[in-house]
Amino acid sequence: MRKYIVPDTIAISDSGFLFMPSTGETFNLNKIGKEIFQMLQKGGTEEEVFKYILDEYDIDKSSFEKDFSDFVAQLQKYTLIKEE
């Protein structure tokens, strides 16, 4: 059950606009990206994210596994999250 740490300083707005104060970088997340990021920010586990997305949206588990893995890799690349 993987968990991720989101730096305290990162701020995300209701529109999914993400600002990293230490570097001045900004990012835009779509609705689902924002929901996932906010869950991770609140300490949600990978399992909890999967459960929420598969319940809420019409997507099969294997497709979401791939999408989630890509998304997490992007977030890690930009140091927006790191694995606990």
């Binding site: 300083t9 104060p21 230490s22 570097t23 001045g24 970088e25």
Partner: peptide
């Protein structure tokens, strides 16, 4: 402290944002 957001071909910052580092 400021990060350059846009740099001209002369290397000048044409836009920037204050940062916390």
């Amino acid at each position: 402290a400021m990060r350059k957001l846009y740099i001209t071909d002369k290397g000048k910052g044409w836009a920037g944002i204050t940062i916390d580092d």
